[in-house]
Design a protein around this nucleic acid. Structure first.
Length: 135
DNA sequence: TCCTTGACTCAGA
DNA sequence: CTCTGAGCCAAGG
């Protein structure tokens, strides 16, 4: 019988799909980090959980490297609160897009994650009239 | 098949 | 605070 084990390519395709699904629902003016998105996606079959933790953040980055046009990719930044620079692109366009949504960058090109980080849980709590616990 | 690179993150120095 | 190296997977030369 076929073990139907996922090939790397298929694995990547479904992983990317999950990433897009999440990024698509980040509200305007809010941001998420690569790592935060990765933590919401369970390890694919065939990938060791421990190893997955080490690479998921990068996978999210790879997924956004070639994402559909309807994905608000600019709302994803790194854990340091900065726009991740990449080869041949300084990230200025991404910063401008975020600023147009009201996101404030400090003099070091960083945003306050406390203010802008979006999590589905916090959103859910708010919808139900509950106040997200801090800490 | 080997080697390098990549939109990350964390722990150390 | 900044800078490095490690850790892990996949794609391309």
């Amino acid at each position: 019988m076929s073990k139907t084990r996922q090939k790397p390519a298929e694995r990547r395709r479904s992983f990317n799909a999950r990433v897009y699904e999440i990024v698509r629902i980040i509200p305007t003016g809010k941001i998420m980090t690569y790592g935060a998105i990765g933590r919401l996606i369970p390890p694919p079959r065939g990938v060791d959980g421990g190893a997955y933790e080490k690479v998921r953040a990068r996978w999210v980055g790879y997924a956004l490297a070639d994402c559909p046009d309807d994905i608000p990719w600019h709302r994803v930044i790194n854990a340091a609160g900065r726009v991740s620079p990449r080869p041949g692109y300084d990230g200025m366009r991404q910063r401008i897009l975020l600023e147009q949504e009201g996101v404030i960058f400090d003099e070091h090109g960083r945003v306050n994650l406390q203010d802008y980080l979006w999590t589905p849980l916090a959103s859910w709590l708010t919808r139900h009239g509950l106040r997200p616990a801090r800490g």
